[in-house]
Design a protein around this nucleic acid. Sequence first.
DNA 1: TAATTAAGTCAATATGGCTGACCTAAATAA
DNA 2: TTATTTAGGTCAGCCATATTGACTTAATTA
Lengths: 160, 160
Amino acid sequence: MADLNKLLTPIYLNEKEIRKIIELMFFSYRDFTSGPDKILEKIKFGRAHHRVIYFVGKRNNLTIKELLSILKITKQSLSRVLNQLVKEKYIVLSIGEDKRTKKLSLSRRGLELEKKLSEIQINKIFNVIKNFNENEINGFKKVLFEMIDHKNQNKFNEIN
Amino acid sequence: MADLNKLLTPIYLNEKEIRKIIELMFFSYRDFTSGPDKILEKIKFGRAHHRVIYFVGKRNNLTIKELLSILKITKQSLSRVLNQLVKEKYIVLSIGEDKRTKKLSLSRRGLELEKKLSEIQINKIFNVIKNFNENEINGFKKVLFEMIDHKNQNKFNEIN
DNA sequence: TAATTAAGTCAATATGGCTGACCTAAATAA
DNA sequence: TTATTTAGGTCAGCCATATTGACTTAATTA
């Protein structure tokens, strides 16, 4: 059975090859986030601040609830980060039509920081994928998408 | 110029499309690590323990220095995690030919945990990529590889 | 009017990083 | 042979990010 498996399984489905993917995920994600991390450090922010700025920048007038459902962290965790961003005027709050809700948006200052941080990642991705053909890039995106838990794939689709 | 760019830039190199990749990286990495995280939680370990177990399992008789150069964390950070793994008998230390060095290897217990944790990620990847053709999978791997900082790509090649 | 929802807050806890300072023992270079 | 470098260890303190649990307020909805 094990031998039959070896005969019938294409090489790219071997455990050894799959383990390479595990490592590629680790190394690439680490280096993918390291650029923004360095800038954030200077202004005493962390990766969590970047995420908030990123998604607020993407969807202006996001409510806290929506943001929590994207980030999937507790409101207590978000609270610390968000309060800092509001206090330091990167993010502006306003009250929604439903007066229980609050809408988040980037200030000019916040938008500047968002640009600065995302630019690094955008450039990195651009410089990588420009050397690949459309099929390869689509393969990359489709595989990554399928690596997202089924229940969370909707979230990606919702915001895009 | 901006208009010319729009005319000449393929759609998959647009900022909007690249931002999707940023999000795919975030969501996929989060869900990729969530499986092992749940198991680790039960035995009061974290993701850092998984990494150590993973790379020691991959390369038996790894030295501390080599492990540090893969993980790129400080020895003080590694120390806490590693001491726990040794104390709880997941990892065994022995002295190298160069008597200043120590070699790390997994105990039977450690190997069992490694299997249990990696199995989740291996199965997840297997179940995703089995539905893709070889070109798409290669595209995926090649793009991920190129997302690794140049200076760190060697590290991936060394261990593979 | 009662129940639910959105948001906020206080407190305690855990994990995973970091810097800096300092130590030991072994290997290597001058 | 002595001096330097290297591998590893340790103590202390700090910071960021996350968690759980308990409780509050105000607005909406049943």
